[in-house]
Amino acid sequence: MFEARIAQGGLLKKVVEAIKDLIEDANFDCNNSGFSLQAMDSSHVSLVALSLRADGFEHYRCDRNVSMGMKLANLSKILKCAGNEDAITMKSEDNGDTITFMFETPNQERLSEFDLKLMDIDSEHLGIPEAEYDATVKLPAGEFQRIVKDLSSIGDTVEISVTKDAVKFGTTGDIGSANIMCRQNKSVDKPEESTEIDINEPVALTFALRYLNSFAKATPLSTHVVLKLSKDLPIVVEYHVPDVGRLGFYLAPKVEE
């Protein structure tokens, strides 16, 4: 059987809210080392990869590998019934056709149980190659969310260019154009506001803002977002959840015809 308990149930809620508009349904794969999900959006230009480590849970048991297909909209409906401070326990029997979610309030006065029907989903598991990236940028997640939101009111795509000292986001649209530059700033007193750039080679790539905006829904998960860029490779937009795992998004760059 599979059983996992996470004290910060709010974290699961945030994860599902971050991906539910991008992917319709997906298999949650559970094995000894943890809980993961990998799925492409319906247009097949972006991929979501979630991994939550077994030791990130208070209690974790998985006797045999299981793959549980769920419709994200339904999962979200159920998790919305959990309080942000609730502990969440997920439970499923081997070969069961449901997964049970138990919500426990911090004072343990209220205990709720919801069963979600599982479904069969055909999905091929794609390997994610370990790539060397030309540039890696770590910036406050809220800052990135604001940039892609602001630029969306001007254009449809953003050119992200990274040099040694700064990362620039630029767009052009019918009403005009916009450029936002963030300088490297490894501020020591406020680490949550730091912007760090690690570069092998300057790089400039263009992406659809619609997807980046969707990825930015993961902002509540982490203080920082990590962007990894290489010429002709999908950008990686990564949110690390300390001691628990990561949520990564991959998006193909727009290629000039």
């Binding site: 994610i128 190659p129 999908p234 193909a252 760059p253």
Partner: peptide, 14 residues
């Protein structure tokens, strides 16, 4: 479609 091909090639290289 170029986008899809690029994603496909990337993951196929793993």
């Amino acid at each position: 479609l170029r986008d899809q091909q690029l994603m496909f090639d990337f993951f196929a290289s793993a």
